[in-house]
């Protein structure tokens, strides 16, 4: 049964991340008084791209072809170790804690940057350099955020963090937890290329950050790249909701019904998180590039204050 649930969790991430992305696109169109594409549009896009053959630069080497598969493998690995549909560790959860998950996500980002450099396209190099810069600033802040939850639960295992917060709801209003949650949400926006870091619907190559790394891709590999990006958004949102905001309502991992209920619960939670992201997308402007450091510094600062506060505010 645990292995069945493990498979269900990864399948849910694979199959529903497209729905999550489609719902966000639709919601942000509705916010702008447009009709917008159907919620199912990403599925159609994926089917279309998967059926096409790619056009690849003759400068591209094996790294370029290899990267999307490795990145996809990374996202699938993360989907097995974080709590998405159950609050009990599934058989593969021993693979890593939150720091391990962050490491695997960083590996995916690293190979995508390598692939962007591989074709020698100027925009790819630009994107790789920008993403690496942002990543180098976001990563220390992310580690501090894990420490803020760590001081509350005395662990950096996402399941134990979930249990610690679910068991004592009063911990939700501790300054440490609130600051950590806000900082994690800021980093989530930065890591998944949303406003105020990057406009997810932007089409101007010169101002793109993450998107410009994948401009050279087409066909099946492009489908994998996009799919991977949606999975990353889905996984980070699920961690945000399940560990930081609403640690309740997950199945206990004993039966298939519990798992299916967990899928429904996580969809409901993601609706909340997605709405927040869409509202931010609609109401703020993109930051100028060199002010991104201030934004990420703000996230770092919030997490740091959270940790310092944990020593003075009684638990």
């Amino acid at each position: 049964m645990p292995y069945l649930l493990q498979a269900l969790q990864s399948l849910a991430v694979l199959g529903l991340c497209t729905l999550y992305a489609g719902a966000q696109t639709r919601a942000s169109a509705v916010l702008q008084s447009k009709r917008g594409p159907s919620v199912l549009q990403p599925y159609r896009d994926l089917a279309k791209w998967l059926g096409k053959s790619g056009v690849v630069s003759d400068q591209a080497g094996w790294v370029f072809h290899f990267a999307p598969y490795l990145a996809m493998a990374c996202y699938l690995t993360v989907s097995t170790i974080v709590p998405v549909i159950t609050d009990q560790p599934l058989p593969m959860a021993f693979l890593g804690d939150l720091l391990g998950g962050a490491l695997v996500l960083a590996l995916a980002s690293f190979v995508m940057s390598l692939a962007a450099l591989d074709t020698g396209s100027p925009l790819g190099g630009l994107g790789a350099s920008r993403t690496t810069w942002i990543g180098s600033l976001a990563e220390p802040a992310l580690i501090l955020v894990f420490f803020t939850v760590g001081v509350l639960s005395a662990s950096d295992n996402p399941y134990l963090m979930n249990h610690a917060i679910a068991a004592s709801p009063a911990a939700m209003v501790l300054p440490t937890h609130l600051l950590g949650a806000v900082a994690f949400f800021m980093l989530l926006l930065a890591e998944t290329g949303h406003i105020p870091i990057e406009n997810p619907a932007g089409t101007i190559e010169i101002s793109m950050i993450e998107e410009s790394r994948v401009l050279e891709y087409s066909g099946r590999e492009y489908a994998l790249v996009k799919w991977g990006g949606w999975m990353k958004l889905f996984l980070l949102s699920a961690v945000f909701m399940n560990v930081f905001v609403l640690p309740w309502g997950l199945g206990n991992g004993t039966s298939l019904e519990q798992g299916l209920l967990g899928v429904l619960a996580v969809l409901g939670k993601l609706a909340v998180c997605g709405l927040a992201i869409v509202l931010i997308d609609a109401s703020f402007a993109k930051l100028r590039f060199f002010r991104i450091a201030e934004y990420l510094g703000g996230a770092f600062l919030l997490a740091l204050i959270g940790i310092i506060t944990s020593y003075v505010v009684a638990k």
Partner: peptide
């Protein structure tokens, strides 16, 4: 956790 007033004060 402290008293509710303590929690409010800490947050504040």
């Amino acid at each position: 956790m402290g008293s509710p007033a303590g929690v409010i004060l800490s947050l504040d």
